[in-house]
Design a protein around this nucleic acid. Structure first.
Lengths: 239, 239
DNA sequence: CGGAATGTTGAACCTTTTCAATAGGCGTGG
DNA sequence: CCACGCCTATTGAAAAGGTTCAACATTCCG
């Protein structure tokens, strides 16, 4: 795991607070949130935040950075379950069996808020909004996975890659970054694992979209030229 | 929705209690659980328990029966997310946005325990094990989906169908029913939607497994002849 | 700067899909 | 109770989309 480092900033002042804990909250209640996060840590690129099988003690909130969540199956192959950006919570699969069922690795230097499970339990006993919020968060993760599985099943390569790019852009936008001009922090292989395509197909499809004039690629840098065409493309290119 | 009908049986006497709410519990606490379920309803074959978009008021526990959970996408196509049997909880995706994000239909006459959200909130405020249990349940659902997505992505048709049959058998076994001799309550098309294959491939693959002497099919009735061969088959038949 | 990792591109191949035709099952009504 | 019709399942053949293998280009990092 990464080295500790004190990062000054309370939840109440954090710019991504409402992404982590989307609940209506009074100023008075906000102090409850502030004690939720005891430590913050840095995780450097390629370092693990936690590994599949590690004991579950905390969930984590991404303050800054970019990470991937993955499972390794019995044959040792890695399957990417998702990419994680600021304001997103990690480790939610740990509640099930008191150990993490997936691994999280930083794809870019990241800062992570540590939220101890014990503290969640303590606080939520008296502060009920937190408990409801956690329900919502866990349920949202279920919904997200369901929606993902519907996309991945019924789409062809072009639709998968288009969806992937649009989704990334949208998430950058929510974080006040450019929606149509961003760096892919992951490799083609990781994209492929996520959307269920081989690395070759990912590469070909990206190039195809480029040749269609929808995007522009400079290695890891992606520029969405015509976001509307990309969206239309999604619907019109039927399997 | 289905007609109401009083079904006498407390959680504390229910044979599938530990499937619904897997928590250690004292006899005294058990009374807490008993008040959790206020009503029980019957849902006949082909009837909906709830529909995608319906307001979220309750989660449900299957007492007896067999159901399917599905999403309808924007093009009106149905994607099956899962099949549900006794002791399983339904409606967990409702917490996210206070409405159900999926629909549940009975594939066989079923009896369902209704657990009102309000009541969960009330009880869990004083009875903390319930709250922890709900966390676990929601998290388990996330883990289940993750594992599902890893299988569905990396497996060929034969592996998918084998996994599907083994999983069903295992779940029947946990309910003291035969592990290797059961009725498929769903159509081939519904199997296909679930494992991401066309109806034709499902049919062909089932027949192939039959011709290999691993299973025996009589329309909806499945007999697993050689469960070990089916399991080996899973590993040995590489993509 | 040089080696290793990552990405691109082509061609053959293979699995699953698609289309089409037929067979089987189930339920309703005469 | 049987017949009819509809829905579901099976099977074949052709097609398509993605994968695999292989060679080469580019980028990254020490």
């Amino acid at each position: 795991m990464a080295e500790d480092q004190k990062i000054k900033e309370k939840c109440s002042d954090c710019s991504v607070r409402e992404l982590c804990f989307p609940m209506e909250i009074t100023d008075a209640d906000m102090t409850q949130l502030d004690v939720l996060v005891k430590t913050k840590i840095k995780v450097r690129k390629k370092e693990y935040l936690y590994r599949q099988g590690d004991e579950f003690n905390s969930i984590y909130a991404v303050r800054v950075g970019f990470l991937k969540t993955a499972i390794t199956n019995s044959q040792g192959e890695e399957k990417i379950l998702g990419f994680n950006m600021s304001g997103e919570l990690l480790g939610l699969d740990g509640f099930a069996n008191n150990k993490y069922e997936s691994s999280v690795v930083a794809l870019h230097d990241s800062e992570i808020c540590v939220i101890e499970k014990n503290r969640i339990d303590e606080i939520s006993q008296t502060f009920h909004p937190l408990q409801n919020c956690l329900q919502k968060i866990l349920s949202t993760e279920i919904v997200r996975n369901n929606n993902l599985s519907i996309s991945m099943s019924s789409m062809n390569a072009e639709q998968k890659i288009s969806t992937f790019l649009l989704n990334l852009g949208q998430r950058f936008k929510m974080r006040n970054q450019s929606e149509n001009h961003f760096i892919l922090r992951m490799t083609r292989s990781e994209i492929g694992s996520y959307v269920d395509l081989t690395i070759e197909t990912v590469s070909r499809t990206l190039r195809k979209l480029e040749s269609m004039g929808v995007i522009k690629i400079h290695s890891k840098l992606i520029k969405i030229i015509d976001i509307n065409k990309l969206k239309e493309n999604l619907i019109s290119c039927q399997t």
